[in-house]
């Protein structure tokens, strides 16, 4: 179980990105985080694996305080938390296979990895994961030769290399067209249901939230404004989350 307690983040330029956010995520849950752009969704996800250092508050995972972990322990925690990104964040000049294998870096011998050597099991695992997201044939292409949807699949395969128990997805489909968006969301849902990976996913479109998520929390200017089931978000709630002038589109 992941517990977020009173999490607050104030950036160096005094911007209050998160304001006293608390929630719990049960193992195996698919939780959506919604809110306007700039409402703190990305900061929240990055505070969980400390890509962003929280200013106050705690993130406790199975009794371990992630926020208090020293750097070396943090590495060991991070390798069980996969993450995928809106911009995919692949190394575009490297091959797909190398990108996927880089998900294994937390586990491999640091010395060998520096000369781009991975054990045979890891390479097989990488091919299996590429197979799973449906692009095994692209393993030896350069990452920038792939379309957006394919790049996000590589991102997911990379996260899977970590044998994650939690998957953080930061707007995973915001750069994709609706058809691709659904295919990516279906993969995430499948991983959530088949492997029991908890998914914490920030999303823009409410219909995606209602179709795939078990639960949703909403942020507005860093403050939690909703925590409940996706279908509970009616027009009234919608206006609370997105502001008075917002119109639903989709």
């Amino acid at each position: 179980m992941l517990e977020v307690k009173n999490l607050t983040k104030i950036y160096d330029n005094k911007v209050l990105a998160l304001d006293n956010v608390s929630f719990q995520v049960e193992d195996g849950q698919f939780m959506a985080v919604i809110g306007l752009s700039g409402s703190g969704k990305s900061t929240l996800l990055r505070c969980i694996n400390r890509l962003v250092e929280p200013t106050r508050g705690q993130v406790i995972w199975d009794g371990v305080d992630i926020t208090a972990a020293p750097q070396e322990d943090l590495r060991l925690i991070r390798r069980r938390i996969g993450m995928i990104f809106q911009q995919f964040n692949l190394v575009t000049r490297a091959s797909v296979l190398t990108n996927v294998l880089s998900g294994r870096l937390g586990y491999t011998n640091p010395l060998w990895s520096l000369i781009n050597y991975f054990p045979k099991e890891d390479v097989e695992k990488a091919m299996a994961n590429l197979e799973r997201v449906g692009i095994a044939d692209k393993a030896h292409s350069r990452a920038d030769e792939l379309s957006g949807g394919q790049q996000q699949r590589v991102g997911i395969a990379r996260a899977l290399m970590q044998d994650p128990q939690i998957l953080l997805a930061d707007e995973p489909v915001a750069s994709l067209d609706p058809v691709l968006a659904h295919s990516i969301m279906r993969i995430l849902k499948k991983l959530n249901q088949e492997d029991g990976i908890s998914v914490i996913c920030s999303l823009h479109f409410l219909d995606l939230v209602q179709q795939y998520a078990d639960r949703a929390i909403a942020l507005n200017e860093g403050r939690p404004v909703f925590d409940g089931l996706p279908r509970e978000i009616d027009d009234q709630r919608f206006k609370e989350i997105y502001g008075r002038d917002a119109e639903r589109i989709g």
């Binding site: 991070r78 990895s113 970590q162």
Partner: peptide, 17 residues
């Protein structure tokens, strides 16, 4: 960011990202 999130150390991050 992505490579750091996988639990890679600083040297690995430099080499891979």
């Amino acid at each position: 960011e992505a490579v750091t999130a996988t639990g890679a150390n600083r040297l690995q991050t430099i080499v891979y990202a």
